[in-house]
């Protein structure tokens, strides 16, 4: 059966309509969960609001379990799913740069779009910075082209990397998530007790 578009079950012409609908659903959930507020998001780094961790981990776990079951029942062919290829060293560098950008900007690209929608000027500036950042990257691309393509490990999955089945990876992930939910809930209670004001 699935995935529908790569299998040709849904014709390509519907591609962009579906993209728009999926985007709307994505944006709605992001905004409704409170990702349109940068102070809400960065709370995860200071312990006063772990909404990012909760939403993020729950989403990953639900999608992971769902994909495995879909595969089991033959509804989706996991081999046709696009598995993000791993480029070891550039990804490490990119993730570290993004981590700093995350704390400074308080948004990530997807959440900044929803924040613009409800009228946040800082989100507009963030998106402008995003534009500039990607522009700078493309301009100076020749200088680190070699590095950009280095450490290619192909579309390797977590299970393949550690030599275990991806079902086991999913279970481990769920357990980690549940433990993280509990710990962060305790931390949040403690931190919020000491906070004088907490407004958005």
């Amino acid at each position: 059966m699935g995935p529908l578009i790569p299998q040709g079950i849904i014709p390509m012409g519907w591609d962009f309509v579906i993209a728009l609908l999926i985007g709307i659903a994505f944006g709605f959930v992001l905004e409704a969960s409170g990702f349109s507020s940068s102070r809400n998001i960065t709370g995860v780094f200071y312990g006063y609001n772990f909404v990012v961790l909760r939403v993020f981990f729950t989403a990953v776990v639900v999608a992971m379990i769902g994909l495995q079951y879909f595969d089991y029942f033959g509804w989706i062919d996991l081999n046709q799913i696009y598995v993000l290829p791993t480029f070891l060293s550039p990804m490490i560098v990119g993730a570290i740069i993004m981590g700093v950008g995350f704390v400074l900007g308080g948004f990530c690209p997807g959440t900044s779009y929803t924040a613009i929608a409800i009228g946040k000027i800082d989100a507009m500036v963030f998106t402008g910075g995003l534009f500039l950042g990607i522009f700078l990257f493309s301009e100076f691309f020749p200088f680190f082209e070699q590095f950009y393509y280095s450490g290619n490990m192909g579309s390797i999955t977590i299970g393949e990397f550690f030599g275990i089945s991806n079902n086991l990876v999913t279970l481990i992930f769920v357990v980690i998530a549940v433990v993280a939910f509990y710990i962060t809930w305790r931390i949040e209670l403690r931190v919020r007790k000491n906070m004088i004001q907490y407004k958005f």
């Binding site: 990119g94 993004m98 700093v100 950008g101 704390v103 948004f107 690209p109 995003l130 950042g133 700078l136």
Partner: peptide
């Protein structure tokens, strides 16, 4: 932050 995120992504 936006610039860093752009380059990092």
């Amino acid at each position: 932050g936006g610039i860093l995120f752009g380059i990092g992504s």
